[in-house]
Amino acid sequence: MSLIITYVGSKGCVIAGDKRRIGFFGDESQREKLEEELYSGEIRTDEELLKKASELDITLKITDDAQKVREIGDVAVGEVRFKTPLKTKRKRIYGTTGAYNIVELLGSDIKTIKGGESSIVVFGNKVTKEIANKTIKDNWKNKTNLQDIGKLFSKVMEDVA
């Protein structure tokens, strides 16, 4: 379950992302059922996920070393992706001091581009975004610095986990 959080402001950019990647293998309709339960929040723990996958005869490959956040020069880049044997969908954010762009790709085709000058952008599924947005709202201070934002993003990652 991916979560990438980006803050872009006039004094800098902060980005944080999880490292989990889950591969689903098996019958497509059963995979979709499992993913729906997982991403809707019905499944809340690794144990519940493994049990439900077994019941649906779905094989999972779970890794916790994915590199979803990186730096290219002065630009922070975060990416979430959805990959099947036939297609790859990716959503990226490029952030730097005072500007960001969001790009969606289907294969190598650019699907949409959005941008702005300052914002907090959260990538994830419905449940992770709700938790992240609530934690940010409950803990945001008007006068804050980039280090405090980094600490807040760490708290968000803990709350979502």
Rank of each mutant, 00 (worst) to 15 (best):
A76W: 02
E55L: 10
I43G: 09
V75Y: 04
T63P: 05
K51Y: 09
G73H: 04
Q67R: 06
E42L: 08
T97Y: 01
E35F: 03
L105E: 10
E55W: 09
R31W: 01
I93W: 04
S108H: 05
T84G: 09
G95F: 03
K91L: 12
Y94E: 09
T45F: 02
R70D: 05
Y100A: 09
G107V: 04
S54A: 11
I72Y: 06
N101V: 14
L106A: 08
K83W: 00
R81E: 10
A76H: 07
A76I: 08
R44L: 09
V69N: 05
Y94K: 02
E55S: 08
Y94S: 02
G107H: 06
R70H: 03
S40P: 03
S40A: 06
I93R: 04
R90S: 14
S108M: 02
E79F: 05
N101A: 12
I110V: 15
K83I: 15
K89M: 09
R92D: 00
E32V: 06
N101P: 03
F82R: 13
I72Q: 11
Y94T: 00
I93K: 01
L86N: 10
T45E: 03
D109M: 05
E37M: 15
L106T: 06
I43Q: 03
D46V: 08
V80P: 01
R31H: 02
E37N: 11
L86A: 13
D109E: 11
E79W: 01
L106Q: 04
A66D: 09
G78K: 04
V69Q: 03
K61A: 13
E71P: 02
K68I: 05
K83L: 14
R44T: 06
V69K: 11
E47I: 10
A76L: 11
G41T: 05
L38M: 13
K91D: 00
V80D: 04
L38D: 07
K87L: 15
P85L: 12
T45C: 04
D64I: 02
Y100T: 06
G95Y: 03
G41L: 00
Y100F: 14
K89A: 05
A53E: 12
K91T: 09
V75L: 07
L56H: 11
D64T: 09
V80L: 12
E42P: 01
K52P: 04
L50D: 05
L56Q: 10
E36F: 05
D65W: 06
S54I: 01
D74W: 01
E71Y: 11
E35S: 14
K87A: 15
K52L: 13
L34R: 09
S40W: 00
I58V: 14
R92C: 11
D65F: 07
Y100M: 07
F82L: 13
T45S: 15
V77H: 02
S108F: 01
L86K: 14
S108V: 05
G78V: 13
L34T: 09
T59A: 13
R31V: 15
G41I: 00
R31Y: 01
V103L: 13
T59P: 03
K33E: 13
I72H: 09
F82T: 12
K87H: 08
V77I: 14
G95E: 04
T84C: 06
Q67E: 08
I58T: 02
L50M: 12
D46H: 11
S108Y: 01
